[in-house]
Structures are given as structure tokens and as C-alpha cells.
Design a protein around this nucleic acid. Sequence first.
DNA 1: CTGAAAGCGCTAACAG
DNA 2: CTGTTAGCGCTTTCAG
Lengths: 345, 345
Amino acid sequence: MVTLAEVARHAGVSASTVSYVLSGKRPISAVTRRRVTASIEQLGYQPHAGARALASSRSRIIALMVPLRTDMYVPVMLEIAVAVATTARAHGYDVLLLTGEEGPSALRRVTGSGLAEAVILMDVQLDDGRLPVLRTAGPPAVLVGLPADPAGLNCVDLDFRAAGALCVDHLAGLGHREIAVIGESPGVYARHTGFAERTLSGLRSRAAEREVRMLHRPCEGSHDAVAGVLARILDERPHVSAFVVQNETAVEPLLALLRRTGRAVPEDVSVVAVCADQIAAQASVPLTSVAIPAQELGRRAVERLIARLTGRPDGEGAAGVELLTPVLTVRDSSGPPPPPRTPGA
Amino acid sequence: MVTLAEVARHAGVSASTVSYVLSGKRPISAVTRRRVTASIEQLGYQPHAGARALASSRSRIIALMVPLRTDMYVPVMLEIAVAVATTARAHGYDVLLLTGEEGPSALRRVTGSGLAEAVILMDVQLDDGRLPVLRTAGPPAVLVGLPADPAGLNCVDLDFRAAGALCVDHLAGLGHREIAVIGESPGVYARHTGFAERTLSGLRSRAAEREVRMLHRPCEGSHDAVAGVLARILDERPHVSAFVVQNETAVEPLLALLRRTGRAVPEDVSVVAVCADQIAAQASVPLTSVAIPAQELGRRAVERLIARLTGRPDGEGAAGVELLTPVLTVRDSSGPPPPPRTPGA
DNA sequence: CTGAAAGCGCTAACAG
DNA sequence: CTGTTAGCGCTTTCAG
């Protein structure tokens, strides 16, 4: 293995000079810089990560904790993870992959051992067990998601409350007075996953404001489950004229079932989704939807972390919540409600 | 930060003793071990990862390279990644997340800097640009996938050739004489992705053996694309009585289209999928399918690597290809072909 | 603008 | 069974 000392000898300079050429932390004459970089090139030198971390107490590694369970938003999760890795690399950082299963102790481990300088958490619950570790002299951290009490925490997320409200506004604007929400699996709500509950809250309050009657049903992703939920909804609320879906796997089953029961979209019933843009666009009926900006979330999370890591301690951007404004894209699945059926027609 | 030296002082022993208590590399009397572990506990000591890596030249980190593109098998990819992380942890290793985009140079970087001891590559192409690096004095590596020439490489994958053959056998056994294969996106074949081409080869050769007529069409995942491909197939081969699908996103559109065109599954037409079990089981018609054992693949990849890392160099399990035997699960989507239409009936 | 040298915290001979 | 000690390769004062 080629060491910095060998490079120094080869270039006829001291070790510290090579180090400073690499870090740029002090001025180096153009001549020596050239000599050093040439030697580095020729010898194929690569600084030893461990030695660096030891001497500088900076590992240049960010830990990313992804949920172990895969009952929802899988493509979104991967997209965020990839965006995190890509952005981190652009800033000279690497990403360590942790699974949610390991819990708070994993955070202590990677952070306490100096393996990772900072952490990014995905799939945050409203009352997440990992949060105490972060508040109490924890490492720099950014959550992708929003817990119940974000005080002292650094969070990035889509404004799901606004997203919910946006869906209601769109439908109310079209004239719908009665809608149904097909949500994530019951387990997601049982775990009090932030985004699901916040969407619901946005839907509910805006529905109240705009005097839209609303029904919410959690739903498993299987075709049968969707069939059951749909039947129940239509039974309980025969006048529902629009659906809001927040459940990737329920999208196609829902559309198929509506077709099969002779309900045309959007003529007889409108559908608005909160999901990855790709899914909405590729659905059998291109869906009006609020997109989940996965890449943007991953990117921002890293950039906040880097700002914190490189900035003055507790300086700008140290904490605070950043909610991205949702955007609703109108596609083919939403329109005005059907005219009220004339009695006897 | 608590150091090993402080632990040693606190416990009244030497630094090396503490180190050996931790590593178990030499016998320690029960008494001192107790004293040391107590001190470790009390002081909340955590060994410094960088220092360890430097002193031992072992980082206890495995790099995992996942594809950047997300045009296929996303849930499977994440599941493999999570299985890799989980299994690695069980062996005391951490996982560094790399994106495929970085290419061969990323492998050199993490490996040359001692950041990672070994690598796992996903989404291997038949002629993958990253392979030369691995053959030429590369780091210990395991590929999840199978390149054209696996000589000198360590590979784990599902036996997709056998999977293809299995599908044909199942359908031929039921009496089908003419089948159509709906494949991955054209881009996947254009990139010569191993699993797609191998499945195809298995399908083709077994079809030839069993005198089954077969047609293959790549297909994008959108509903419209599936509709186009299906129409074309039915046009060109009106007597097709069964479909093999290897494309997660095409599954539901296909089933919906068959329904809409009045073809009952499995009475009029059979469907067999090669995809994640969950997708097959949750489809609107539970699908007979060959599962992709994502967890198993991730687990095996790590275990091969660990064996190589801890075993004698170039000893057992150093190289070679391990292909998992595919399993076909019969569900509701396959049955005998419909009786030939009586002319004039 | 450049060198010399003191660690960073741990491992692993070597010595008993 | 335990202690002593020499590094691992790099960063960063302290001196020039």
C-alpha cells in the first residue's frame, strides 16, 4: 500500500506538505503542488480512510437508517436512499446503511465509535424511539419525516398536511361534496407514522372548512383488501363521488375495481392520489396526484447535514423543520362529479 | 471521548489486556475479564472505528453497490440491500452504500483507501464494466447476478435459466402449446442484464425441447405499453393460451387488460410470473409464479464474503458460482388451455 | 511558503 | 495469564 510518506519522499517534500496539498488548508507554491500531485498520480496513492478518521476525528461518513419493513412506499424509500448517497458523494461523504431494526443503539454505536459523523433517519414515527438519543447530546442528525414534537430536531419532509388539503381543494373546486380516502395499511396508522397521520389531518380539516363530507379507511395493498374496503365505502356512502388514495399498491386494484363495477373515471368518479409521480403517471388511468419528491427529500437532508457539519457549530441551519410545498398535477382521473341522478330516471 | 487507555487505568490493567478482552484473541482470567468489562460498562467505552481500522487494517465494512436506475425490480433491490445489511451486522460488519453510477472507480476508491474490506455488486450486466477491477487483484467481491464470464468471480443468483425452463414445463405440462413472454423494458435487454437474458434463454431452450411455440416481447411498465404489446401478441399469435411475465409493473395492467377483453384467467388464458412472491400473491388474480428469493440472495452474498474474509486466503468458497434452485408456486392463474374452438361454433 | 515531530486510539508482536 | 512497546498512516501544531 502506498502511504503519504512514500509520496513525500518521491516528491522530495515533507509529509505535511503532501497533506496540505491534499487538504488545501494552507498555501502551497504552484511548483511543489505540481510535483506532489504528479507523485500521487504516479504512485496511485490513496489516503487511508481509517488513519484520516483517527487523526482528524472526522470519518466523512453519514449513517442512513432505512426502515426494515417494506410494507409501504418501497420505491420512494429506495429513491431517497439513492439520492442521499449521490448527494453525499458530491460533498465528499460516504453513506453507511443501517436498518431501522437496530434502533437507537445502532445510532449510538456508529456515532460513538466515530464511524459516522452524522445520521439521517427515514420512516420517522410520531413518537420515535430514536429521538431521545438525538436530543440528548446526540450526533448531528436530520430526519426525513416529522415527529410529533420536532423541537430541537432537524427535519425535512413533504408538507403532507398541505398535500391533504390540496387534494380536498382540488376536488371541492370541481364540485365534489362527498369523498372517501383510501389510506395506508392499518399497521401504518397503528405505528403512528408521521406522514400518514399528517395527510389525514390535512384532509380532515380542509374538508371541514369546505364542507365536504369525508370518510377514511386504512387499506392493505392486496386486491381483495381493496375490494373489501371499496365495497364497504360504497355501501356506507353511496354518494361518494371522489377518492383520495394514499397507498401505492392500492392504486391499480382500485382502478380495476371501479372499471369492473361500471364506474368510469373521471366521469362517474374522480380519483386523486398521493404517491410517487411515476406510479401516478403510469397508472391505467393517468392519475391526478400530489407527488412525493423523493430525490428532493434525500438531497435536502444531506445538504442540511453538510451545512451543519461544515458550518460553525450550532450556527445557521442547525435545527428547524423544512416542509416542502406539495404540488398537485392534474392528469386524467379527476373531473366534476356526475350530475345528481334524477329520481326515477 | 473514552479511550481504551482510560479503561485500562480504571480497571487497573494494561491496554493490551483490555484489547484482548475485547477481541478474545488470548485467554483472560475470569477475574480480570470481569473487572475490565465492568470498567467498559461504567465508562461507556466505545472503541474508535478509525483507530481499529488503522491498527488492524480491517475496517469491518462491506461496500454494497446498488443500481442507480430504478426501472425494474425496485422492491427486490431494497429487500436484497436490507438483507445484506442485516446479515452483515450479524457478523459484526457494517455496510457502505454505493450507487452504481459511480462505476469501477468507486470500487477502487473505497477499497484502496481501506474504507471497505470487500464489495457486493448488484445489478450485474453480462459484460459489466466493473468486473475487470475485480479480476485484477481486486478486493474480495461477490456479485448478486451472473455475468457472461464468471471465471474467477464469486457469484450468487437465482438460476434464472432454470426458472424460465420451469415456467415452460409447468405450462407444457398443463397442455399449452403456444405461449407468449412479456419481458422487462427494452432497456434492460439492451444493457444485457444477466437475469433477463438468462431467463429468456431458459424459456427458449425448454420451449424448443417441449415443442412449445414461443414469442418474446420486451415491455415498458406503463398500462399503455402493456396494452400495445398485448394487442400485438394477440394479433400475431391468436392461439396463444398462456403468458409468462417477467416484469413487476406489467403484472396488474396485463391482468386488467385480459379481463377487459373478456379473457378469464385461468380458464381462457394462463399467466405465470417471475417476480417477488408478494407481488404474485397480492395480484388481482393470485399468480402462479417463480419467486425471486431476495433475502436469501442478500444473505448468501454476505455469508460467502465473510467466509472468504475470515477463512484462509483463497481457501474454501473463494470463488465460484452459486445458483439457487427456483421454486414455482402454483396459485390461481394457471390451468389447462381452453379446448380448441370448434370451427363454426 | 515548507519541515519536524507529536500524537490520534488501537492492535499485535515480543517478553515474561 | 498479563504487561511493554512499537507502530498503523495521517493531521496539525510549532518552528522556521
